[in-house]
Design a protein around this nucleic acid. Structure first.
Length: 482
RNA sequence: GGCGCUGUAGCCAAGUGGUAAGGCAGAGGUCUGCAAAACCUCCACCACCGGUUCAAAUCCGGUCAGCGCCUCCA
């Protein structure tokens, strides 16, 4: 895997054999999630799934930021959770609840597994205060007018993650420097609440609210321990957020995360998709016209550390490719029951080759594009064997069974594909009824075809196509799919 | 200005010094009542200029273009 801290690929070795503790910076729930969030969530979901596939017991912790931090400057300005609340005439906590559930729904549809623990910032104020007190005791933080700041100068390692040296950074390039900080680069751990601030808690320094970075340090340490394996997040959080997390934890005496992983950004028209730029597509809107499974497939089609360029035609391409894999799986399942015993079927060796290629790709820094390519190569061989079977005889049971296992375990469990129903949360499951109805329709159409009334049979096929159902005639009779 | 990243076929996208995975689109063929699917075949002067090397998309230097972070951001 690639480690952001050492800036190279390293062999992953968990701190405790057989177990992996992972922490992922989650969303601030003040608006709907967009495709960029999906890239991050899916990327780390696949990493988690692969580690589980390799036999690790994974504890996956991902937070929910429901405090709402500052909108403009890091020292003053309006809390964005409060801003949203005012806009929607809701209590801040209602805003958080609303977008929390919206986020959870989006993730469920994308097939993202739920975290083992999903702590909320507002539920861990005491832990955050405790960590701040420890930093103060150790001389790495100081109080000023009811706010507490981390003193960057007191921690020489500050900057080791992002490769920034303190002296390189320009001072005062942004906004006016607030007088109460000893150094403009010091960041807030606790902020004094002004009169109008709704979200506020009692602390040793008076009434206030936590700074942006402290929650992740406090919650990851609480649920994963002094030192845990992997800390993940978006590349845009590397600095200052993760840099601050490390400083906070280590300066307080905790070894903290052993490996750091960052996913790259998703771009549209060559520019980063982000809330502030306004060039985003929310998942809720997207799912109205694109199957979430297709979105997921598109996202794993590029490596997590690469930039993913988003475009509408990408969905068309992803849809076609996904269908090719999906159809091959369906056909494999359909043919399996009647497959003969066939020792030495060359397909079996081919399947094993592709499974190995998949594992090799995923073991090399979770290379999902190469892993997907292995599935496509598998599909070419499976389809060729099945097509040849029309003339000769079916592929052997062992080979088809191995292919089935490859699709379901690698494509399904690891990559999170082929999850029937995952994209249709809340939809009625009338699969059986539809299947029966389609049997009736196809039987009628077959009647026309046998009596060479092709106009009538084509009319039926045309009407079905009109509602998104494709009919295919094969040697074994007609099939349909949508 | 500082730190960092990217430039591979019409589009998307891998690539660990030994002459380019994969997908979509496209072309031809097989099969088929016609389609569709499937199968077979075809489809890349790796941004540019130098250098190192027996050998470079891969390493080094430079040029051009673009992007990210340094302010909330996944």
């Amino acid at each position: 895997m690639h480690d952001s801290l050492s800036r190279r690929k390293v062999i992953f070795e968990p701190g405790v054999p057989g177990k992996v503790g992972m922490y992922l910076c989650g969303p601030t729930v003040y608006s709907d999630a967009h495709l960029g969030h999906a890239k991050k969530e899916v990327a780390f979901d696949v990493i988690r799934r692969y580690l589980a596939h390799r036999g690790y017991a994974v504890r996956y912790v991902s937070n929910i930021t429901d405090v709402g931090h500052l909108q403009n400057d890091s020292d003053d300005g309006e809390d964005k959770m409060l801003a949203r609340a005012a806009l929607e005439r809701l209590e801040p906590i209602e805003v958080a609840e609303k977008y929390y559930w919206s986020f959870m729904d989006d993730m469920a549809r994308l097939g993202v597994q739920r975290p083992s623990i999903q702590p909320r910032a507002t539920g861990h104020i005491p832990e955050q205060i405790e960590l701040i007190e420890e930093l103060t005791r150790r001389g790495h933080a100081y109080e000023a007018n009811g706010s507490v700041y981390f003193e960057v100068r007191s921690w020489p390692e500050y900057g080791k993650l992002s490769g920034r040296k303190l002296d390189d950074q320009e001072e005062g390039t942004r906004e006016a420097v607030r007088g109460e900080k000893r150094d403009p680069r010091d960041f807030a751990l606790w902020k004094r609440a002004e009169a109008g601030h709704i979200m506020r808690w009692q602390s040793p320094w008076g009434v206030g609210f936590p700074g942006w970075h402290i929650e992740c340090s406090a919650m990851s340490l609480k649920y994963l321990g002094e030192s845990f394996d992997i800390h993940g997040g978006g590349l845009d959080l590397e600095f200052p957020h993760h840099e601050a997390e490390i400083a906070q934890a280590e300066a307080a005496g905790h070894p903290f995360a052993r490996y750091w992983m960052h996913n790259n950004m998703l771009t549209i028209g060559g520019e980063k998709m982000s809330k502030s730029k306004g060039n985003f597509t929310t998942l809720i809107d997207l799912f109205k016209r694109v199957d979430p499974q297709i979105v997921r497939f598109l996202l794993i089609g590029s490596h997590y550390r690469s930039i993913t360029e988003f475009s509408e035609e990408g969905f068309v391409s992803a849809h076609s490719g996904y269908r090719r894999l999906h159809d091959a799986l369906s056909e494999t399942l359909r043919r399996l029951p009647g497959a003969p015993e066939k020792p030495g079927d060359p397909l079996l060796a081919q399947v094993r080759t592709h499974v190995s290629a998949f594992e090799a790709a995923m073991s090399d820094d979770f290379n999902t594009p190469r892993a997907v390519a292995a599935l496509f190569n598998l599909t070419t061989d499976v389809n060729a064997a099945l097509a040849g079977a029309a003339h000769q005889q079916s592929p052997g049971r062992d080979a088809l069974e191995a292919a089935r296992a490859a699709y379901l375990e690698l494509g399904g469990s690891v990559l999170g594909l082929f999850a029937a129903g995952a994209g249709a949360v809340g939809a009625q499951d009338d699969t059986a009824l539809v299947g029966t109805l389609m049997d009736v329709v196809l039987e009628a159409r077959q009647h026309y075809r046998l009596s060479k009334q092709y106009a009538a049979s084509d009319a039926l096929r045309g009407k079905l196509a009109g509602v998104g159902v494709t009919v295919e005639d094969t040697r074994d009779g007609a099939r349909w799919k949508r």
